[in-house]
Nucleic acid binder design. Sequence first.
DNA 1: GCCAACGTTGGC
DNA 2: GCCAACGTTGGC
Length: 150
Amino acid sequence: MKSEPDVYGIDHLSAQKRKTDHWDGIRNYQARNFIRDEMKKGDLAFFYHSNCEEPAIVGMMEIVQEAYPDHTAFLSSEKYFDAKSDPNNPRWYMVDVRFKKKFKIPVTLKTLKQEKVLAQMRLVQRGNRLSILPVTDKEWKHILKIAGEL
DNA sequence: GCCAACGTTGGC
DNA sequence: GCCAACGTTGGC
């Protein structure tokens, strides 16, 4: 799951009450489908810092609440307001995540790209802008190993 | 339903 | 700050 550290980084999440927050602002259908259809309570996810000096996977978190309507889409005062999302037929969803761990050594995009095992990851593929991406078990373990967490 | 124009993302 | 790669929009 990607986020810009200047806007909302992993330290923001860990500073939340109970280290938990909702992951709002997803306004892309593919990303929404992952959120809504694939994420289950208890699943783990990587926290990725994007659009910054050193893009990297910086830690991990847990899905603690499965998809429910993203209410920020309903409020015209919100940055991610979407007039086409009707409260009676919501278009956008979010999950709640709880901070689990911040890696001592972030796994940089540069490193990820050098790993043959990870070449198939959508995250490392050129021009990928999706903010929610699947990770296979194999990739997950490999990344944890690089992070020195396994 | 095509596709040009436009806006956004995000690495560099 | 640049720009390639996408996704979305809207005229036709």
